[in-house]
Structure formats: C-alpha cells, structure tokens
Design a protein around this nucleic acid. Structure first.
Length: 495
RNA sequence: GUCCCCGUCGUCUAGCCAGGUCCAGGACACCGGCCUUUCACGCCGGCGACACGGGUUCAAAUCCCGUCGGGGACGCCA
C-alpha cells in the first residue's frame, strides 16, 4: 500500500497563528487516523523575512498544542541546489525557458493591461528565442528568470480536490510562471513541489488560497514525471468583517502563544480550532484526542470560510466566545489530577505556589481546585479570582463591596461577632459554620444572606463563588476568623 | 478588471451529492424560568437562518439558470 505522508510547511515570518495551527491540526489528524507520517518543513527561502525566533515560536506552538510530527524540521533553504537542479532539468526537457524580459518591462505591461481592463498574461516574448539569441544575451550579461512553459494545448487541466471537487483550468488561461528569480533563487511554486516530491508527500491539506495555483503545481509534477498527490483545500479563517486574520491587524489574539499565555488548555484550543471549518457530521462538539482521530475525515471539511468571532474591545469576551466556553468546559470536567499540574505552574508563576500543595496539603489542594474551578474560564483564574484561597493578600472587588458591605452600616460589627462564633465552635465544618451563621442572623434579626454575602466578600474578595460554608472550610477557620475580624480593613482595599 | 471558490440562525455548523420524514436539528452567544446565601454549573423554555429571483417537479434548503453578496488568486512573496 502507498505510504501516507503529509507535511506542514510554515514560512517562518511570524508566530504560529491559529489559522496555521488549524492547518497543522488537520494534517496531523489525517496522519494519525491513517497511520501515516507528518513532516515538518520550514519554508525559509525568503531569507529576508525568516527569523530564528519565528522558527522557535512555531515549533514551541506546535509542541504546546500537542501536534506531533514524525520527520523534520527540514529547512527548505538547505535544498536550494536541488531546486536549481530541478529548474535545469525542466529547461533541458523543454518544460521551461530562460526569460530576459526585465522586471520593469513586465510591470509596465501588467499595469497597462490593468488600466485597459484586460487580463494580463506573460506574452512569451522569450519563449521563442533560439539558442544563439539566448547565448548572446547571456554573454552580454543580461539577467534572466526561468519560466515554466505551459503546454500549448487546448482543453483544460483538471484535477479533483477532495473538498472542492473537480476543478478545470483551461491551459490557455495559465501564464508561463516564473520558477527561478533573476538572482538565481528558485521560487515557492517550484521549491514546494520539488520538496514534496523528495519528501514523498501523498496528501496536501492546505488553505483554500492555494487552490488557484494548484494547476501550476500539477504542471510541474507532470513535467518532473512525479506522481501527483491528493489535494484537499480547506476553507479560510476570516474575522467578523470577512478579512483574513493576521497578527498585523488583529494582534496577539490570532497567535497560539496568546492562548497559552491566557490560560488555555492546549486541547481545548485544538478542539475549538478543529470545529472552525470541520464537523464530524453529527452533533458532537467535544472530543477526546482519540475520538477526534476516529471521527476525522476530509469529507467533513467545510467549503465556505469560517469566521473567527473575535471582536476587538469586547469587555466580556477576550476572544471567540465559543473558544472560551470550550476551554471552560474542559476546565471543569477534566480529571482534577490532570488539572493540578497546570494550575501549579500558573500559581508558581504568580508567586502563590507552596510545595505543601503537592505534599501534606495535596488533598486540600485538589479539593479546593474542585470547589472553585466550576466558575472559571481559564487556568489564569485560579491565581486571579481564586487568589484568596492561596494568599492572604487579595483585592476586594468594587462590585462586591458595594453590594455586600457598603449597604450595611453595622456589617463590621456583625462579621466580628460571626468571627467570635466561629472561633468558639468545637468543630469547624460546613454544617456547624452554617448553623452558627443562621443562629447569629436570627439573634441580630437580619437575613442570613447579609452575613453570608458579607462574609464571602471579606473572605474571598469576590461577588460570586461557591457556597459560603464550603469556602470557609477550604480557607480554614484560622484565616477566616482573622479575615472577618479585619473586615473593615480588608474592605478598604482597592480592587 | 479577469479567472476561480463560496453563500443555512449574530457566530460555528447538521441537512444538500442519492428532492418528501425540515413550517430546518445541534452548539456558542443572548433572553426568561427552575435551583439558590451570591455567581456559575445543571435542567427547562424562548429568540433566531435556507441571500434573492426564475425554472424543473405532485413536492426544492436540497436539482438547473440568473442576479446579488462575500472571499481568494492574478508577484522575480510564501
């Protein structure tokens, strides 16, 4: 059976963005599903724009996502000789020719054509040059590019794209495209094909923007006598204004790094991204890795472009709401043992980690995560909204203070009394603390909610959270009593 | 401008190829309710789409044509 080999060929001119990640994920899933190999190839032929940081960023982004590859990274720049050799071979076999037209001449013709509203196509001036003419120009030192000679035949080149179906392109519509620059550097169209042939790539899954130049690449495959791979073009990811997403216009939100920095679970991002332009064909939206691999198929890819629903300046959602929801879903349903190390890393970065959490207080730590994670959206929330569980210095939200403290003149006194009751309890449990609270409220002639919400505000600084009595037990009697006694001082803290 | 691709709720999508089971299903978002000491979760309910116009047919989201809309490509970028 034919070997299944796919590749992910990023050009290292920026960070890994979510569109690129989506492409990588589809390639990876196809490979995993069919037992193939994924090749990572860095297309760094544009030396001016390629950077080391970018290469590192792409690799660490893929690693973080869990997208693994079997070969590489290979660097396209290392195969320049091979690319040039292929160009030579194409000239020798009559599939390409040297073109001495200057860039300026070409641009002028192109502009004139656009002005005249005519479709421009290279006029083949140099296609008919004879050997002597070519030799004369070369001797005179006239620089030249190498153009692929599109077969002079009628009809159309056709191929079947796995997603878009049969595509026909009349030969007459295809220009004799440049494959080697005048400075001798081979171009993408050629390099890409030569590399894919060398790497024995069997399937190409790439963005729909590659659809129009697929006929040109097929021509190169044919001229080089190579087998043509299966093509599957995927829809693009656009912004709400239907523009292509880019770091330049959207900023960090379109980079994988952003999600890592904002406390996303890698798999949640993968799950979200894979659904942008693909569906399993049924109603499933949450997949384990194995479920996704089993469910994946090229047939599920959508033809129409998908919109990444990010709205700059949105106060409630810092990225696509569905992405946040997917992350929150995993956060509250994943195994607590798997969540713990991720939270640990984040708490450590925030200076809130205590080694006891992985030692004698491990049970407490896991229980606390279980208690508070239901309301959180990202890993970062543990150190921010959940700060009061891990530190004694935490801010009090304005909204909480306004709603639960400022409205009651005697709240300081009441919570002080509550602290006394708690201190006097034989056992400090969810049940005993609740009973003590309700009894005190009754004695004071106020609603228990006043004490409950006031205590939550003081003890955690938050307007919302788990049931108060579970909070109290999690934070511990000593700290609770102390915090309640310093009620007014804590309430005065700025947010 | 030319060529190519696409067009189902605000967003992601199922359904389309093999027309009827679709006055169109799910998810997110939004709204309401239940639960409740708060918020969230959960559960229940609501809002909300076949771009438009023709045609074929007993029957069209599904097939055909046209229009409009959106995107892509048109580089000596990748």
């Amino acid at each position: 059976m034919e070997e299944i080999r796919l590749r992910f060929p990023p050009s290292p001119t920026g960070y890994l963005h979510i569109g690129g990640a989506r492409t990588a994920i589809y390639n990876w899933l196809y490979v995993k599903k069919h037992g193939g190999k994924l090749i990572l190839r860095i297309e760094d032929t544009d030396a001016d724009r390629s950077t080391k940081e970018s290469i590192d960023g792409i690799i660490s982004g893929l690693e973080w996502l869990g997208v693994t590859w079997d070969e590489g990274p290979y660097f396209q720049s290392e195969f320049a000789d091979e690319h040039r050799a292929a160009a030579r071979k194409l000239i020798e076999s009559g599939h390409a020719y040297k073109c001495f037209c200057t860039k300026e001449e070409e641009e002028a013709k192109r502009e004139a054509a656009v002005a005249a509203k005519i479709t421009y196509k290279y006029d083949r001036t140099c296609c008919s040059l004879n050997a002597q003419e070519i030799a004369a120009r070369e001797k005179a030192g006239v620089p030249h590019v190498i153009r692929f000679k599109v077969p002079d035949r009628g009809g159309a080149l056709s191929f079947t794209d796995t997603v878009y179906g049969r595509i026909d392109r009349p030969y007459a519509d295809i220009e004799d495209f440049v494959i080697v620059r005048s400075n001798g550097m081979p171009l993408y169209l050629l390099c890409n094909v030569v590399d894919d042939i060398r790497d024995r790539i069997s399937h190409i899954i790439r963005g729909q923007d590659g659809l129009v130049n697929t006929p040109k690449q097929i021509l190169i495959y044919e001229a080089l006598g190579a087998r043509i791979p299966v093509f599957a073009h995927m829809s693009l990811t656009l912004d709400p204004k239907k523009a292509k997403i880019s770091k330049r216009s959207h900023g960090e939100v379109v980079t994988v790094q952003f999600y890592r920095d904002h406390g996303f679970l890698p798999w949640a991002l993968v799950n979200f991204l894979v659904l942008l332009g693909w569906s399993a064909g049924d109603d499933r939206e949450i997949f384990s890795k194995q479920e996704l691999i089993d469910a994946f198929s090229l047939e599920g890819l959508t033809k129409s472009n998908a919109i990444f629903n990010y709205n700059k300046g949105d106060e409630k959602f810092f990225t696509d709401p569905k992405a946040i929801n997917t992350n929150a879903h995993y956060l509250r349903t994943m195994k607590i043992e798997e969540l713990a190390p991720l939270v640990r890393e984040d708490l450590a970065a925030a200076g809130l980690w205590n080694d006891d959490y992985d030692g004698e207080k491990k049970a407490w730590f896991l229980n606390t995560l279980e208690l508070i994670r239901g309301r959180f959206h990202t890993i970062r929330d543990f150190a921010i909204m959940g700060r009061s569980y891990f530190a004694d210095e935490y801010p009090v939200m304005d909204a909480a203070r306004a709603k639960n403290i400022d409205k009651h003149e005697k709240i300081g006194e009441w919570l002080g009394l509550l602290a006394d009751r708690f201190a006097a309890l034989a056992d400090f449990t969810k049940e005993s603390s609740e009973e003590a609270t309700r009894v005190l409220a009754e004695e004071l002639g106020i609603k228990p909610g006043i004490l409950i919400n006031g205590a939550r505000t003081i003890v955690t600084g938050q307007v919302a959270g788990p049931g108060l009595f579970e909070i109290l037990v999690a934070i511990g009697r000593e700290r609770v009593v102390d915090r309640l006694r310093r009620c007014l001082e804590i309430a005065a803290r700025a947010e």
